[in-house]
Amino acid sequence: MSRRKFLHQAGALASGLLLHQQLLAAFNSGIQQTVNIGFIGCGDRGRGILHIMRELPAVFRVTAVCDVLDFRLQEMLKDAPGVKSYKDHRKLLEDKEVHAVIIATPLNLHYSIAADALAAGKHVFLEKTMTYNIPEAAKLVQLAKQHPAQVLQVGHQYRYVPLYFKVKEMIEKGYLGKITHIDCRWDRNWNWRRNVPAGYSDKQVNWRMYKAYSGGLVAELLSHQIDFINWAFDTHPDEVLGTGGIDFYKDGRETFDNVQVILRYNKENMIGNFGATCGNSREGYIFKLKGTKGTVALLVNSGIFYPEPETRKELQVVDGVSGATKIEWNTDGGIPILKEKGKDGTWYALKDFHQCITEKKQPTSNVITGATTAVCVHLANAAAYTHTIQKWKPSYNFSS
């Protein structure tokens, strides 16, 4: 590699903070038109989105909330007093004051509620995974095409985080060389259960534990990392293998508490390992992209580039050249990708949702990309539960 190219790389790696500042400036310079929001689903995720929304400039106004569970609805009303409340989402969708909806319900309800929202003329922020299965993903793609004036954004928020934008750029510009291997984990030492109040069933509250309502750990956690790989490489897996089990929590759950899936990307000559367990939290969140020139190791909002030995030597030579941007090495011999941690990914995603509505733009995480990741999740679970190798089919290429 030429000295000039490495000078360029050194400067680019040191410019992460500038990128973060530029993105924030761009977000904050947008149209400040207020959008009236209705929440459909008032569980942990719905309330979490509400809290993050309050950190934004006054671009959203919450005017209505909806949940079929009374205790969830009452919890939400404590955080949003005075707004209209509904137990039937269709009644909320009839409300002419509501411009857009946040859908944060159990996964099995995503498609039907999103379809109703589009039919009612609302913009939609639909939590991940976009749909429960592949047929629903295909149908929602077709429905969204029939409503081109409405925004349908899917809650894969890594597509909006400055850190992950930067990593995507590093991949595209060859900083990592040829990437052949990806290692991802999202581990915890917790049973993943919520308390069930008197008068409610476990299936109503702990729906993530039951196959009829949930895609389990793959849908709720690993889908974020799977989606990022789809985005960063403009790809999808060709083969999916998986295994898993209910290996620790023998408590009546149906979805696995321990899962490992392998995605093979033939066009990229690349393997992705994606795993999660509820039985150990030592590693927590891991996201490593391994290339011939270096490795990127990511946490949710921080990341390090670790050059391979030969790459490191060349970077150090360039670092000593007069006029070159100084590279800041950490104690492990890595280069921080951003000097400052960014905000929660949902903050950036909500900002973009507002801009897409007011400026009539297509979201980065849209119905096509959401459908592609929903297919990946469906195939991964099918592989794990049936002990089969799942293959990508041409019918899953929704953009063609």
Rank of each mutant, 00 (worst) to 15 (best):
F60Q: 01
Y210P: 08
G370A: 01
V261A: 02
D202L: 00
R208F: 11
C66K: 05
Y158K: 15
Y265K: 01
D183I: 14
G275C: 11
T255G: 02
I226M: 10
V101Q: 02
K96R: 15
L69N: 06
A138P: 01
K178L: 08
R264F: 09
T346A: 03
L241H: 00
G334V: 01
A120W: 00
V35Y: 08
L56E: 05
A144P: 05
R90M: 00
K168G: 14
L152W: 00
H99A: 12
L338D: 05
Q355I: 14
R282S: 15
F353Q: 00
D234P: 03
K168R: 15
G82E: 03
E127R: 07
W207L: 04
R45N: 12
Y86P: 04
G242P: 01
T295M: 13
G41Q: 07
N280E: 12
Q157R: 10
D95F: 02
V205T: 00
L107T: 15
S399M: 13
P237Y: 02
H147R: 05
G320K: 14
S112T: 15
F248N: 11
S2C: 09
A25L: 10
E172S: 10
W190Q: 14
G252W: 03
M53F: 04
G279M: 09
P307A: 06
T372I: 10
G174N: 03
G345Q: 09
W192P: 05
T386L: 08
R45Y: 14
C66N: 12
D88F: 07
E310Q: 13
R282G: 10
P394D: 05
V124W: 01
I171T: 08
A380H: 06
Q32H: 13
N273H: 15
L17F: 09
P309I: 08
F305A: 00
I49K: 10
F60M: 02
K166Q: 14
T255F: 00
G245Y: 03
I337A: 08
G177H: 04
K84I: 06
E314D: 11
I179T: 00
L315A: 02
N381G: 07
P106C: 09
N366K: 04
S395K: 14
N195P: 12
T292Y: 05
W329F: 12
I357D: 02
P135E: 09
V59Y: 06
E169C: 11
A382V: 10
L13M: 12
D88H: 11
K139D: 15
G284H: 05
L13S: 04
G11R: 08
S400Y: 11
Q146A: 15
A297Q: 14
K5C: 08
